[in-house]
């Protein structure tokens, strides 16, 4: 019984710990491009600020609108744009990372709906230390 209680307490402590750190990550300026042609992938962008004292990593992104979301980056070499998937994005303590067109971005594949300008989609950002943060994201042609 003691062990179970201890276990519950530990779980609670872990949960508490995660919640405490969650506030260290601040997501702002989130927006997503519409799916212009059915079946084509979409992109989403946002600003991540790490107000905490330890570095954290965005390790994955999930959503109810798609089973397949990936974190990508663009690199330009000799004028040629190359896009590749990245394993994670590190946000150092006290610093921030901008996901934006032409740089880091979230790719949304196999969407269940062809969402348009004016629609809203949900994105859940999963961080290594701070846990998950869900955002409702406006769909627009460009960032205002």
């Amino acid at each position: 019984m003691k062990k179970i209680l201890l276990g519950v307490l530990m779980l609670f402590a872990i949960q508490f710990n995660v919640n405490a750190e969650e506030g260290d990550i601040l997501i702002t300026n989130e927006w997503a491009r519409p799916i212009l042609i059915s079946g084509r992938p979409g992109g989403a962008y946002l600003h991540i600020e790490n107000k905490g004292n330890v570095a954290d990593k965005l390790v994955s992104v999930t959503s109810t609108i798609s089973p397949k979301l990936e974190i990508h980056e663009h690199t330009m070499k000799d004028g040629v744009m190359k896009m590749s998937q990245v394993d994670h994005i590190e946000i150092k303590a006290g610093s921030s990372v901008e996901l934006k067109p032409g740089g880091y971005h979230i790719m949304i594949f196999e969407t269940s709906s062809q969402y348009k300008v004016g629609d809203k989609i949900d994105l859940t950002l999963n961080f290594e230390k701070s846990g998950s943060i869900t955002k409702t994201v406006n769909v627009m042609m460009k960032h205002p």
């Binding site: 212009l36 084509r40 979409g42 992109g43 663009h74 744009m81 896009m83 032409g102």
Partner: peptide, 8 residues
């Protein structure tokens, strides 16, 4: 048109 980021 499949281009998700750069072209749009």
């Amino acid at each position: 048109t499949y281009c998700p980021d750069i072209c749009p």
